[in-house]
Amino acid sequence: MNALPDIKGAQITEASSVIALEDITRSFGLVHALRGISFSLVPGRALALVGESGCGKTSCARIIARMDNPTSGTMLFRGKDVTAVGSGTEEKSYRRAVQMVFQDPFASLNPVFSVGHHLVRPLKLHGHVQGRKGAADGVDALLESVGLDPILTAHKFPHELSGGQRQRVNIARALAVQPEVLVADEPTSMLDVSIRLGILELLSSIKRQRNLALLYITHDIATAAHVAEEIVVMFAGQMVEWGDTMSVITDPRHPYTKLLLSAVPDPYQPFVPGDSAQFLQHAEKIRQISRPSSDGIDKVGPNHFVRTLGKIA
């Protein structure tokens, strides 16, 4: 038991980070959507934020993407405090550095514009290409980097592409800005299970090639293992367990992490009729004991931390 009060987000907050959240909270009236969130994003590494709907993972993404502001806490960008909205140029450089890929590949492309148009605009707006030839070359390079054939794809409209292809275009659009941080909010949850792996592998490879810091948000802990070196399991606005992905997945300590892992579909464990009431009760009990806020943190491995259970009010 190493419950050190100053250990919050230890290891996960590193000096080399691009973005660091320190003790971020966000309240909507009486609802505490985020409670004491601390983690950081490091170039060339991916952090997975895992939890159920409503646990606060998208609230984190919105704060990082500047679509929302925290109630308290500090956000650092390259070591500089950017919690409060800065000058126009500062904001611009921040937004250029942080790009998002959204969940719904069907709703995040404009149906009246071609794929090429979606990619030329950010390239030109951010001054990454000159002239018509440069723009066309830029689009081709982007499409190739996400595994799409430029000749077949550039002139197409979103409705002519499958969900997986659209998500690749969304990733290319984010890359067109040449960001340092990519925030992917459930990028595969609307896609077929069978094409998820392809998108996950794409995210991993661009992260390596471009030395991107990747924040991967998901409710599917199994996919997190494919992308992220580090994982944060969230429940009811708190980080309940975090650290090296392999360590957390193979040696889960928090009851909620165990519940999440047990719910990953396993084809070799068919449901037993008559067990549903038991699982429902079990799940509800774990939600209940995991909900109260707690300041106790145990270090259970070199980079593996777990929050102790709080008192039930």
Binding site: E52, S53, H219, D220, I221, L259, L260, S262, A263, V264, P265, F271, V272, P273, G274, D275, S276, A277, F279, L280, A283
Partner: peptide, 20 residues
């Protein structure tokens, strides 16, 4: 459209109800 824990809660129930 649901997360994995809720998914399991619902489908375990479906299996139970199917049986009964």
């Amino acid at each position: 459209a649901l997360d994995v824990v809720v998914q399991r809660e619902i489908l375990e129930q479906v299996v139970d109800l199917q049986k009964s």
